[in-house]
Amino acid sequence: RRVTVRKADAGGLGISIKGGRENKMPILISKIFKGLAADQTEALFVGDAILSVNGEDLSSATHDEAVQALKKTGKEVVLEVKYMK
């Protein structure tokens, strides 16, 4: 599913991630910080795999590559996510 997140002037997306190619895992949302941008969408969940950020494929990204992709986003971020059981 596709989720658009609008960041506030102060603060980032409000998520922590884990996983990555070096761990043989997808990039997973490991924490959502209450009240910040990702939480306010009410459409992102701990355990979601982030498949892409603004069209940039993260399916084979390392953890560091995913962190950089998320950091360089502007005010509006489009995440392609899939819930992983």
Rank of each mutant, 00 (worst) to 15 (best):
K72W: 08
G14W: 05
I32G: 03
K34Y: 04
S59P: 02
T62H: 00
V77Q: 06
K7L: 14
A43L: 09
L28H: 15
L13G: 01
S30C: 09
K34M: 06
K34F: 03
Q40F: 01
A66V: 02
D48A: 03
L79I: 08
Y83C: 15
L28W: 15
K75V: 09
V67G: 04
V3F: 03
G19L: 02
L13K: 01
G47S: 01
V3H: 02
S59C: 10
H63M: 13
N54T: 00
M25P: 03
A66K: 02
N23D: 10
N54D: 15
G12S: 11
F33H: 15
E80P: 02
S60P: 01
D39L: 03
Q68A: 12
A61N: 07
A37L: 06
L28S: 08
S16A: 15
K85D: 14
K34V: 07
M84Y: 15
K82D: 08
Y83D: 15
R21V: 11
Q40A: 12
A10D: 14
Y83E: 15
F33M: 12
E56C: 11
R21M: 08
V77K: 05
S59M: 08
K72G: 11
I27V: 08
S60L: 10
I32M: 05
G47V: 03
R21N: 00
S52T: 09
E42W: 05
I17V: 09
I29D: 01
A66R: 00
K72F: 10
Q68G: 08
L58I: 14
I27H: 05
T4I: 14
A38N: 00
R2I: 13
S30R: 06
S30G: 07
S52E: 06
V5R: 01
P26V: 02
I29W: 03
I15E: 02
K72R: 14
V3R: 03
S60M: 13
V53P: 04
S16C: 13
I50R: 01
G19H: 00
A10C: 14
A43S: 14
N54F: 01
L28E: 08
I15N: 00
K18Y: 12
D39S: 09
T73E: 09
F33T: 15
T4R: 07
K82S: 10
V46R: 05
G74C: 09
I15R: 01
A8E: 12
D9E: 15
A61F: 05
N23Q: 14
F45P: 07
K72P: 06
G74M: 06
A69I: 15
V81R: 05
A66E: 02
K31M: 03
G14F: 00
A61K: 08
F45C: 13
P26D: 01
K7A: 11
L58P: 01
A37S: 08
D48H: 00
K24S: 12
E22H: 00
S16H: 11
K34W: 01
R1D: 02
D39E: 09
G14L: 01
S30P: 03
K85A: 15
R21Q: 09
M25D: 06
I29L: 02
S52V: 04
K85N: 12
G47T: 00
K75A: 12
D9W: 09
L70E: 01
A69H: 08
A37C: 07
M84K: 09
T62P: 05
E80W: 05
K34G: 07
F33D: 15
E56M: 12
N54A: 01
K82N: 07
A37I: 05
L44S: 15
A38F: 00
S30M: 04
E56T: 14
I29R: 04
K71A: 14
E22A: 05
H63K: 12
I32K: 04
H63V: 14
R21L: 08
D64Y: 11
G14K: 00
A66Y: 03
I29E: 06
I27K: 00
I17D: 01
E22Q: 09
L70M: 09
A43C: 11
I50K: 04
R2N: 08
L28Q: 11
G74E: 10
V3P: 02
Q68C: 10
G20H: 06
K75G: 10
R2W: 11
G74Q: 08
V3G: 02
A38P: 04
K72T: 11
E42T: 07
A8P: 15
V53F: 02
L70H: 04
V77H: 05
A43Q: 15
V3A: 02
L58V: 09
A10H: 15
I50L: 09
K34I: 08
V3Q: 01
E56V: 14
T4A: 07
S30H: 11
G74P: 09
A61D: 00
L79D: 03
F33Q: 15
P26R: 03
K34N: 07
A61T: 07
V5Y: 04
G14D: 08
G14A: 05
I50V: 07
I15P: 00
T62I: 06
I32F: 01
D39Y: 09
V46H: 04
I50T: 04
A43N: 13
G47Y: 06
V5C: 10
L58G: 04
R1Y: 02
P26T: 03
G12V: 10
D48L: 00
F45N: 14
L28I: 15
G47P: 00
D64Q: 13
F33L: 09
V5M: 11
S30N: 10
I50G: 04
L70D: 04
G14N: 04
S16W: 09
K7T: 15
L36W: 10
P26I: 00
F45A: 12
G11L: 13
G19P: 00
T62K: 07
A43D: 10
R1V: 00
M84L: 11
G55P: 01
L58K: 02
D64G: 11
S30D: 14
K85G: 15
P26N: 07
I32V: 10
K24Q: 13
S52Y: 06
M25S: 13
R1S: 04
E80I: 08
N23A: 12
G11N: 13
G20E: 05
K34T: 11
L13P: 02
G19Y: 00
R21I: 12
S30L: 04
G19F: 03
I27E: 02
A61C: 09
S30Y: 05
I29G: 03
V77W: 06
N23W: 14
A38S: 07
L13C: 04
V77D: 02
K24C: 11
T41I: 08
K31V: 01
R1K: 04
D64W: 12
M84I: 11
V3Y: 03
D48Q: 04
K7Q: 11
N54E: 03
Q40C: 11
F45W: 09
R6I: 13
G14Y: 04
I29N: 04
D39I: 05
K18N: 09
T4P: 04
D39R: 04
H63F: 11
N54I: 00
R2C: 09
S52G: 08
K72M: 11
L58F: 08
D64A: 15
I29C: 01
Q68H: 11
V46T: 07
N23K: 14
E42Y: 01
V77P: 05
S59A: 09
L79H: 01
L58Y: 00
Q68D: 11
G19V: 03
K82G: 08
R2L: 12
I29T: 05
Y83F: 11
A10K: 15
L36P: 05
I17P: 03
S52K: 12
N23Y: 15
G11P: 10
Q68M: 11
R21C: 08
L70K: 01
A69L: 13
D64C: 09
K7E: 07
E80M: 08
A61S: 08
E80K: 09
G19C: 01
I50F: 02
G74H: 10
I17F: 05
R21P: 01
R6Y: 15
I50Q: 06
E56G: 06
G11H: 12
V53C: 10
D9K: 12
I32Q: 03
L51Q: 07
L13V: 06
E22L: 06
E42H: 15
F45T: 10
E56H: 13
K31S: 09
V3K: 02
Q68N: 12
A38H: 02
A38T: 08
K31E: 12
Y83S: 15
V46Y: 00
L36D: 12
L36N: 09
V46L: 04
R1A: 01
G35T: 07
V46S: 05
I15T: 01
V77C: 14
V67P: 02
G19K: 04
V81Y: 07
G11W: 07
A43H: 07
L58T: 06
I15G: 01
D39W: 09
G20M: 01
N54H: 00
A69K: 11
